[in-house]
Design a protein around this nucleic acid. Structure first.
Length: 415
RNA sequence: GGAGACGUAGCAAAGUGGCUAAAUGCGGCAGACUGUAAAUCUGCUCCCUAUGGGUUCGGUGGUUCGAAACCACCCGUCUCCA
């Protein structure tokens, strides 16, 4: 299996501009880029596929460039649905800073094929309007651009000139990286196809017909139940440890349905195809062991949260689901629940009021129901008395009480 | 501009004078089972100081002992014609 064949096996190839040419080119070390726009102050799990794909190229001996769209982020990539809201200048700068640090975690910055971090603001930022229009705008035919899927689909619902220009800007990125680093391959999600081909087109026009460049897209990750990938209970799973802690991140992967886990392993894990095949067998033979889920959760959590983060996530998991919380020392409890929601309450508060004020229940009625249904426990003991009162003297260390709603929702009350 | 239809709980959709805090489905929450799964089954799902009370059916007024339901006006959505 050559490199591209493996990517195909992993489900990471949707369209390639010149398949045979690319295979030939990849026999030599190449430079590959993928762009990430700073639309939020953190990347999320949906970005992992492309990031790890860059890493795959690096592991195969190629040089990856992670491009942060500091300039294009100010413009906005046209979405299928509707115009984006412009982000403020400060927000984009802040976001760009944040995602740059995140991207850096996944690539190696030393050795022969050390990764490169770039920001398209470096070349687009100082460009004059005149240069843009005369040197680049001239090379884009409107009729050609209107054929692009992303643009065509927006003609009815409305598309501003600003977003219309996005494709041109991204094409210029590819050209610039081609000139500066000899970058000849751009990768992206399948929605980026139009942008990739524009870039190649531009390179050909500027550098001549001999200039070779390739674009390769990968299918977006889907879920077998049809819902959007990357969310857990409505919350995005971010790569920023401040926004999604190691435990939640670990749990997200551990809870991937059997139907999806092998697909995700192929796409996101650096484990070899042989190892993944073995995991698939194990999944079929003993799905309850969730070995495949554990391998992926371990690998990705370590990548994003480090060795320590992974250890912590596993320890909390072990205790919450298989052990007795009360067997931990108060310090360990606090550590384990460091990221749980905390609420300060007063001594002698009724359980019902505590549930409401900690936002565990929306109303007292709901709180009452939860208690009567037997879904609330405090410090490990189930409580079914709706008159129950929480006392400081009964709290752990006379300091805090751990409330649990349902099977896996923990909250911390401090006195 | 002309003709008509519609607006009910998170969403979809019944209900056309009292039996309606409002059927049913989805979604959500919880319980059982389980693998922290899926499927399935069960309960709950406006608020409260709770065998009771309060406030709801686009808005405002009105008819009536009594209105989500009838009337008037207003606001909003949609369809058809021009």
């Amino acid at each position: 299996m050559n490199f591209i064949e493996e990517l195909k096996w992993r489900g990471l190839v949707k369209d390639v501009t010149d398949y045979d040419g690319l295979i030939e080119a990849l026999k030599q070390p190449q430079t590959v880029y993928c762009g990430f726009d700073p639309t939020a102050d953190s990347l999320h799990v949906g970005h992992l596929q492309q990031i790890i794909l860059l890493r795959r190229y690096q592991n195969a001996g190629h040089r990856p460039i992670a491009l942060c769209g500091g300039f294009t982020g100010m413009i906005g990539d046209p979405r299928l649905t509707s115009e984006r809201k412009l982000l403020s200048h400060e927000d984009v700068l802040h976001n760009a800073d944040c995602i740059k640090n995140q991207l850096a975690k996944f690539l190696k910055f030393d050795g022969e094929n050390a990764a490169v971090m770039e920001n398209n603001n470096n070349w687009l930022g100082d460009m004059s309007l005149l240069d843009y229009l005369r040197e680049y705008g001239k090379l884009f035919n409107i009729a050609y651009m209107l054929q692009k899927d992303t643009i065509k689909k927006r003609l009815d619902s409305g598309l501003s000139y600003t977003e219309f220009s996005y494709t041109i800007l991204q094409a210029m990125d590819f050209l610039k990286l081609y000139q500066k680093y000899g970058c000849r391959i751009e990768i992206g999600g399948s929605d980026q196809w139009g942008n990739l081909t524009s870039g190649m087109e531009l390179i050909r026009k500027v550098e001549g017909d001999d200039a070779k460049a390739w674009g390769i897209t990968s299918p977006l990750i889907t879920k077998s139940d049809g819902t959007k990938f990357g969310k857990s209970e409505g919350k995005n799973i971010w790569l920023d440890p401040e926004r999604t802690n190691a435990y939640e991140f670990y749990q997200f992967w551990l809870n991937i349905p059997d139907d999806d886990i092998i697909d995700y392993l192929k796409r996101l894990s650096l484990h070899t195809p042989e190892e993944i095949n073995t995991l698939e067998e194990s999944m079929r033979a003993a799905p309850e062991k969730r070995e495949a889920q554990k391998v992926l959760a371990d690998e990705l959590t370590e990548m994003v949260h480090g060795r320590e983060g992974l250890e912590k996530a596993k320890k909390i998991t072990e205790t919450f689901f298989h052990g007795d919380i009360m067997s931990l020392t108060p310090d360990e409890m606090k550590d384990g629940l460091a990221d749980a929601e905390k609420t300060a309450v007063s001594d002698g508060i009724t359980l019902i009021d505590a549930l409401v004020s900690a936002n565990i229940a929306k109303s007292k009625g709901e709180a009452r129901r939860l208690i009567q249904q037997g879904s609330v426990s405090a410090n490990g003991a189930k409580i079914t008395d709706i008159e129950a009162v929480l006392k400081k003297s009964e709290a752990v260390n006379e300091e805090f009480t751990i409330l649990k709603k349902g099977k896996k929702n923990y909250y911390l009350l401090t006195f």
